[in-house]
């Protein structure tokens, strides 16, 4: 009788120990975190709003899963058709934007969706002087893109389409890391 009890207690204690060992993730943390496996692409982004504006609805996932070096060949013609269909500033042959880019050249640039970034100084999408040297938090990238799409050769065409009249974020950014404002 007594021996049985002791046996039971011993088994109970042992199983408790085992359970608590298995549950204790911290014990093995440094060696047991699993980073293995193959990670397959589902979304990608270079320049702001490019997929949203220029890729047709049924091709958005395909664009997101095409590597940048193949995007131009696969999507430039779709970009050009959507640009000329969307913007009166690109309705006629020979039309260009303020960067001097005609429909084929402009969409050729955009279809390869990477962000060009300078390592040598000012980083901005467009600040009046520097063009496509990065993307800063406060850059009004949508108005820049609307101007390049709808504004014509001198930014003067289609004024009601070339500025969304939202020029800044709803919270101030910080000058220091992590730069973005605290959440609401």
């Amino acid at each position: 009788m007594k021996i049985f009890k002791i046996k039971y207690i011993a088994i109970a204690v042992a199983s408790l120990l085992m359970v608590s060992c298995n549950n204790d993730d911290n014990m093995m943390e440094e060696t047991s975190i699993d980073f293995s496996g193959t990670f397959v692409q589902e979304d990608q982004m270079g320049r702001p709003a490019v997929n949203t504006v220029f890729v047709s609805s049924d091709s958005k996932d395909a664009f997101n899963t095409t590597i940048p070096s193949q995007q131009g060949a696969m999507f430039q013609s779709m970009f050009q058709a959507n640009l000329t269909g969307l913007s009166p500033a690109y309705a006629n042959d020979g039309d260009a934007n303020a960067l001097g880019l005609d429909a084929a050249t402009f969409t050729g640039l955009l279809a390869t969706d990477v962000l060009n970034v300078s390592l040598d100084g000012t980083t901005t999408f467009y600040d009046g002087t520097n063009v496509l040297t990065g993307r800063a938090l406060a850059d009004d990238v949508i108005t820049v893109e609307l101007l390049l799409i709808f504004g014509g050769e001198d930014f003067s065409e289609n004024p009601s389409l070339s500025n969304d009249n939202v020029d800044a974020n709803d919270k101030e950014f910080s000058d220091s890391f992590p730069y973005l404002a605290s959440p609401w």
Binding site: G37, T38, F39, V40, Q41, E42, D43, Q44, M45, G46, P68, D113, V114, L115, N116, V117, S118, L119, D120, T133
Partner: peptide, 18 residues
């Protein structure tokens, strides 16, 4: 650590474990 000087191209991807 990412090229030093000049211009780089950069983009971000979200990838899911299979």
């Amino acid at each position: 650590e990412i090229g030093g000087s000049g211009t780089i191209n950069t983009w971000v991807e979200a990838k899911s474990k299979q």
